[in-house]
């Protein structure tokens, strides 16, 4: 259920600087990303300059400034996945969908996010597309995984 920013604010009656990160998390959870409009609203609500909020939000990987794609690909870059080659996996995904990590394709179909560890080290290297896990991915298997989502999209 999507809550609007104002109703999120209602949950922070005595708000101040310490509420910034939880509030941004709530906004992102509800909207999927942090839009300029919403960040400005948060800034006015907490009386913190927009530049400060942008600084805090860009410091953490978890915050996004673009809406996620229809298929949101999370690439695990945790230790186990890293050892088993997740960096080449990531590069291959970026190559396949022609967009860098942290961004969304122009048609809005795919987006890539790097996550630290999704807790499936036994399946490394692992990626998750809209919560659906793909285990032991390789550079070769990436193409077919992406293509399978492209076909669903076309139908």
């Amino acid at each position: 259920m999507k809550k609007n920013v104002e109703s999120i604010f209602e949950q922070y009656p005595k708000s101040g600087r310490p509420d910034l990160i939880p509030l941004l998390q709530d906004v992102q959870e509800s909207y999927g990303w942090l839009s300029e409009e919403n960040v400005v609203k948060v800034s006015q609500f907490l009386d913190i300059p927009v530049s400060n909020i942008f600084g805090v939000a860009t410091f953490y990987n978890q915050f996004r400034f673009q809406p996620v794609g229809e298929y949101h690909i999370q690439v695990c870059r945790g230790t186990a996945c890293h050892v088993l080659g997740s960096s080449t996996v990531l590069k291959e995904i970026e190559k396949q969908i022609k967009v860098k990590a942290g961004n969304t394709t122009k048609d809005g179909v795919f987006s890539i996010e790097i996550v630290a560890c999704i807790g499936a080290c036994g399946l490394a290297p692992v990626i998750s597309v809209n919560g659906e896990f793909h285990a032991k991915v390789t550079v070769e298997s990436i193409k077919s995984i992406i293509d399978s989502y492209k076909t669903i999209e076309k139908k």
């Binding site: 300029e36 960040v39 530049s51 942008f54 600084g55």
Partner: peptide, 28 residues
């Protein structure tokens, strides 16, 4: 008391900039 600029990003990606990478002209 203007805070038009602040640190953006983290680590070796850090830079100082206006919110949302806008130009200084539309900042405060």
């Amino acid at each position: 008391g203007v805070s038009a600029i602040d640190f953006v990003n983290r680590g070796n990606q850090s830079y100082i900039g206006v919110a949302f990478d806008k130009g200084l002209n539309i900042s405060s």
